[in-house]
Simulated assay, not measured.
Amino acid sequence: MSTTINTLAHQCGFILFLVAAICFCLLMLLISWFLGSKADGRYTNTPFESGIASVGSARLRLSIKFYLIAMFFVIFDAESLYLYAWAVSIREVGWIGFIEATIFIVILLVSLFYLARIRALNWSPAYCKLHVCKTTTLPNILGAKYPH
């Protein structure tokens, strides 16, 4: 019987916390609605970027290379989180955990060397002029010479 009352007390406390948080958020929104300005100016609904009015479209065409670098960063950053969790629990996992982490690091290094080998991380304009643009044209894919 005691555990049921204890559980009910914890649940009531959590529900009270949720109600208080929602009421606090609504109170802040209500106060800002009353105290905020209601004047409609010329630039009221215009989006600003660093205090400057936007010019042109927001739909810029970016090179796929930027997305590749972002993906590589996310992938290797996520793996560093796994290594951090391993480092925190190193005493509990022992030698087996150490061997598993070593295998994990070796796989990461092999993938990084593979990316460097296929030059996925090298996207300078000089390299693009010499290599990438020549190998990605349709005549080269079909086996014809690259037209100069």
Rank of each mutant, 00 (worst) to 15 (best):
T46F: 03
S63T: 04
A9T: 09
G51K: 03
S32Q: 13
Y82H: 07
G41V: 01
R91V: 05
F48A: 04
R117Y: 14
S50D: 11
F73M: 02
V106W: 04
L112A: 15
S63D: 10
I96G: 11
F14D: 10
Y84R: 11
T135K: 06
R42W: 04
Y114S: 02
F104W: 13
G13R: 08
I105F: 10
V110F: 13
Y146G: 07
E100H: 08
N45D: 11
K65E: 01
Y146D: 10
A120T: 06
T46Q: 01
L108E: 13
C25M: 12
A120W: 00
C128Y: 14
T102M: 13
I15Y: 09
P47N: 07
H148V: 09
A87G: 04
T137F: 11
A53C: 07
Y84A: 12
Y82P: 00
L83E: 08
Y43I: 03
A20Q: 10
R42E: 09
F34Q: 02
G143V: 07
V74N: 02
I103M: 08
K145T: 08
F17C: 11
N122W: 01
Y84W: 10
Y43S: 04
S63N: 10
K65I: 03
C25I: 12
F76Q: 01
L142D: 01
V88M: 05
T3I: 05
F66H: 06
T135D: 13
I99E: 10
Y82Q: 00
T4V: 14
V55A: 05
N122G: 01
S89Y: 06
S2H: 09
A20C: 13
L109C: 13
L29M: 05
V106E: 04
K65H: 05
Y146M: 10
K129A: 15
G56K: 01
T7I: 11
F66Y: 12
F72E: 04
L60G: 00
K134V: 12
M28T: 07
S2I: 04
E92D: 03
L26I: 11
E100N: 12
H10D: 08
V106N: 01
L60R: 05
L30K: 07
G36Y: 03
S111E: 14
L27A: 14
V132I: 15
F17A: 13
S32R: 11
I75L: 11
A20V: 15
K134A: 08
A78Y: 05
S124G: 12
A78Q: 04
S37E: 08
L112D: 02
W123K: 02
F17L: 12
P139V: 02
S57D: 08
L62K: 07
T135M: 15
G13H: 05
T102H: 11
L16I: 09
H148K: 14
T135V: 15
L115K: 00
E92Q: 08
L81Y: 02
A9R: 06
K38E: 04
L29V: 04
I107W: 03
V93C: 00
E92P: 00
I52Q: 12
Y67C: 02
A144F: 15
Q11L: 05
N6V: 04
L109K: 12
A78L: 15
V74F: 08
V132D: 13
L62N: 10
F66W: 15
M71F: 11
L30M: 14
F98A: 13
